[in-house]
Structure formats: structure tokens, C-alpha cells
Amino acid sequence: MRIKNFFIAVLMVLSLAGCKTNPFTGEKNLNFVSNDQLFPAAFAQYDQFLAENNVVTGTAEDRMIKNVGQKIVTAAERYLNANGYQGYLNDFAWEFNLVKDEQLNAWAMPGGKIVFYTGILPVAQTETGVAAIMAHEVAHALADHGAQRMSAGQLQQLVSVAGSVALSGRSEQTQQIFAQAYGLGSQLGVMLPFSRSHETEADRIGLTLMAIAGYNPEEAADLWRRMAAQSQGQSPPEFLSTHPASSTRISNITKWAPEAKAEARKYGVTSFK
């Protein structure tokens, strides 16, 4: 009976997969974490991070980060409103901060909280480079990738528990083999590809957003060429990474940039910075 109940619970969770529509792709996504649950915790963590780090304020670079961020969000709102998603951003509380840190990184938290590290600015080089990074991070927030990762992690744990219960009468060796095989298999076969799919999705959505904001999406490929040069020899093989290989990203972006420009023209954008 315990085994049956656990697998029923797993199936119930699986049935919740695809309960929220991605407004940019039209696809149903794994997401059973509501904004009401996730956003307050994310906002608190973001505030704590800012309190514990060196936030750059009042500089030209800080103003650029905030200005570009607002342009990308305005572009997102135009897209969402035009495609029947009025009010989608109501729960978001956008914030864009520059933090003094040599890491080549920028990140977004659920609900629109974004950080750029000063270390990535020399690679961005220009405002358009910053816009390519910003649009990618805004896309992560808009597509609920944080909530999806949490949902996938919870589902991964639940299936692991269900499997352990199902094998509770077997030998300890059998249980250990299952735990090791499931852990490795779910990570390489599910969680890492899931993460890479989010990065690819954020790349594509980001191109559309930066184009609607008036930035040339073709510049994003050059940005990733510079990023690849900076990280040469340091990245793991793609199948072991949370991110696609740089060559994969550059190829995709080159292919998708004309589509992003065509989408932007629907909003009257005919020239790109």
C-alpha cells in the first residue's frame, strides 16, 4: 500500500506538469510553484545579497545598467500586451543593480531582480552588448525558469523517494545501485539538459526583446564569441554543463537574429543600435 500511495503521489505531481503557459513559446511548462510562494522569498534573498556585497551606484555604468534594463522590460511589456498577456508583469518588481566583482557573470532571480557584475562589462564592451546580456536575464525571469527548476528538483526528489520505498524490501546493495544510477541518470539525462534548454530558450527570447528595444540582435553572437574567448579551455563538455557550448549558442543566435528583427518590425522598430 505504501508503494502504491507513493507512485500515486508521483503521478499526481506529473499531472501538474505543463500547468503554466510560456507566453513567448506558447508551450506548457513544468511549474507548480506560484509567484505568491516564490517571489517574496526571492526578493528577500536579493535584498540580503545586496546588503552583503559592494553595490555600485551613481556611476555612468550603473545608470546604463538601469536604463538598458528598463528598455528591455518595456519591450517585454509591449510584446506581452500585444499577444494577449496583459497584466503578466503585475507581480514583478524589477530591479537592476551593478555589483563590484571580477566574475564574468550576470544573473536574474524570480520576480525581476537582476545583478550585473562589473567583471562582465569589459566583455560586453558596448551598450548593445549589455542589452544582449540583460535581455537574456530578463527572459529567464519572464519564462519562470527559476520556478521550473524548483519544480523539477522537487519532482526529482519525489521520484527518488518513491523508488527507494518501492525497493525497501530489496537488499541494501540493490538500493545503493538504484540510488547511484538514479542520481547520475537523472542529473545527466534530465536536470542538465533541462537547464541547457532554459539557457537556449532565454537566448531566443532575449533576441526578440533586445530587438524590440531597438538593439541589434546580431551583436549577441559577437558577445558570445568574446565570452568564448575569455573562457577558452575552462568550460566542461556540453553534456556535463548547465549551459550549451559557446559554439552551439553562437550558431543558434546567428540563425535566430533575423527572426528577432522581423518580430521587432511588427512593433515599428526598423533601425537597430
Rank of each mutant, 00 (worst) to 15 (best):
M12F: 15
W107C: 13
I120P: 01
G119N: 12
Q37M: 11
N22R: 07
G58N: 08
Y79N: 08
F32W: 09
I72N: 01
P110D: 10
V123I: 15
Y46I: 02
W94Q: 07
L50R: 06
Q45F: 13
T25V: 06
N54E: 15
D91Y: 05
Q103M: 08
K20S: 12
A106D: 08
K100R: 15
E77Q: 13
M12L: 15
D62C: 03
D62L: 03
T118V: 12
L121Y: 10
L38G: 06
A93G: 15
G112V: 04
N67W: 08
F43H: 14
T21F: 06
N105V: 00
A42E: 03
G18S: 05
R63L: 10
G26F: 05
V56T: 06
I72H: 00
T21Y: 13
L50M: 11
S15C: 04
E61G: 04
P110F: 05
N90H: 04
I72P: 01
F43A: 14
F43P: 03
P23C: 06
G87W: 14
A42C: 03
I120S: 03
D101E: 14
Q86G: 03
G58F: 04
N81P: 12
Q48T: 08
I72G: 01
A41R: 13
R63I: 05
P110W: 09
L11Q: 07
N90I: 05
G26E: 02
L98Y: 02
Q45T: 10
I8P: 00
N22Q: 07
E102P: 13
W94R: 05
T59L: 06
L14I: 05
G112F: 09
V13M: 10
E27F: 09
T57Y: 11
F96N: 00
D47K: 14
F96R: 04
F43R: 15
G84R: 03
R78W: 00
A124V: 07
G119H: 05
F43Y: 13
L98I: 12
V10T: 08
T25H: 02
L38H: 10
W94T: 02
G84V: 01
N105M: 05
L38T: 13
G26M: 04
T118M: 09
G112Y: 07
T21M: 14
N22Y: 09
F39R: 00
N31H: 03
N83M: 05
Q103V: 05
I72V: 09
E27A: 15
Y79A: 02
V55Q: 02
N54V: 04
T57E: 12
G26R: 10
L16M: 09
D62V: 09
L14H: 00
L38F: 12
G84P: 05
N22W: 09
V13E: 04
F96D: 02
W107T: 06
R63F: 09
L30G: 03
N67V: 00
G111R: 04
G26D: 06
L11T: 13
P110I: 06
P40D: 01
N67Q: 12
E95W: 00
I72Y: 03
